[in-house]
């Protein structure tokens, strides 16, 4: 392995399916957190519900993939209603705890051994993306740009996913410019003020939760289609935290924040991974300091630090305007 491999590997991840999936999830979360100020810590549950609806409907109940995708998106609407009715009246920090708990409850139920026949326990569902694969027009040899390689199906998924992401960015740009978006931003700033002006805050919060949740489900569905697999470990609490990191890197309440955030996040996450892997293998770092097992942890250690430093020194994200976008006091 040489240094070019580290770089090209990082670029591949920065543009690859994973980055696209986190970008979509962050676009959804941006509506919740960035624009409405909802501290939803259950985004992973929306992703999971979407992905599992598709996986289980196709594999367990042998339904049509496209129909299942529609059901997956509707399932997110249902989850938003179930989750939102009790929690949207809560204070921000309570909302965070309630959503994180709900997400973990959903994950444990779907991953439970007693529902093995329906949802496949810890292995999850797999082998459901055949219809998607059959649409792949990219030649089987994959796509190569100099040292950067993408497998054929991955590239197809990337095209579909990134197109969807850009389309959503466009729609969100229009929505956030509208009076509707203004109400959401008003709620983020001070919901009592918005209430005093005759707006049904609860209703808007619910719309926001549903819309962002459905986009989260789309991310989960793309994740399922990309790997042809959904498993409980894909949708752990950490997934939500990573989506937050993506959003905060790009800057909350910025239309293209999630795109920039996802690309940067995965570039560095994978770059660090490859770097430390290479460094330990080439003995640049002696074994008694870091073994190759430990090298694989470095990226998350750095990630944790970055999240802290970002929040302390640049809460508005890398590109944000501090004046406008700093996350304020309460």
């Amino acid at each position: 392995m040489n240094w070019l491999d580290v770089l090209s590997g990082a670029v591949e991840q920065a543009l690859g399916p994973q980055a696209m999936i986190y970008c979509l999830a962050a676009i959804g979360l941006n509506i919740h957190f960035g624009y409405t100020g909802l501290l939803n810590f259950g985004q992973a549950a929306f992703m999971m519900v979407g992905g599992y609806a598709v996986g289980a409907l196709v594999q367990t109940w042998e339904q049509n993939l496209w129909l299942s995708i529609l059901v997956g998106l509707l399932a997110a609407v249902l989850l938003a209603l179930v989750l939102g009715v009790p929690t949207l009246r809560l204070r921000a920090d309570y909302l965070a705890i309630a959503t994180i708990a709900a997400a973990e409850a959903v994950r444990q139920v779907l991953g439970a051994a007693s529902l093995n026949d329906q949802f496949g326990g810890q292995d999850g569902r797999f082998g459901f993306a055949d219809d998607m694969k059959s649409l792949n027009p990219i030649e089987p040899g994959g796509v190569h740009f100099g040292p950067i390689d993408f497998r054929s199906y991955d590239f197809f998924i990337m095209i579909v996913g990134w197109s969807l992401a850009l389309l959503l960015c466009g729609v969100i740009f229009l929505m956030m410019r509208s009076p509707w978006g203004r109400v959401l931003k008003g709620i983020r700033e001070d919901e009592d003020a918005v209430r005093s002006l005759g707006k049904n805050v609860y209703f808007y919060k619910m719309q926001s939760l549903i819309l962002g949740g459905v986009i989260g489900a789309a991310a989960g569905i793309m994740s399922g289609l990309a790997t042809d697999n959904v498993a409980p470990s894909d949708f752990a609490t950490d997934t939500t935290f990573f989506v937050y990191t993506v959003l905060l890197i790009g800057g909350a309440a910025r239309v293209f924040g999630p795109v920039a955030g996802a690309v940067i996040f995965w570039f560095f996450l994978n770059g660090l991974d490859l770097f430390f892997d290479k460094a330990t293998h080439d003995n640049l770092i002696p074994d008694w300091i870091m073994t190759s097992d430990q090298a694989s942890l470095m990226r998350l250690i750095v990630l944790g630090l970055v999240l802290m430093l970002l929040m302390i020194y640049r809460p508005q994200g890398i590109f944000g305007d501090r004046r406008e976008l700093a996350i304020d006091g309460r």
Partner: peptide
């Protein structure tokens, strides 16, 4: 952070970063 007047929500996210950091250091 309290001195800087960092908001509670921001501090909460900082604590998430700290948790990820510490957990992986422990595993290290």
């Amino acid at each position: 952070l309290r001195r800087r007047g960092t908001g509670l929500l921001a501090m909460m996210i900082v604590s998430i970063g700290l948790a990820i950091f510490l957990r992986n250091v422990y595993q290290y």
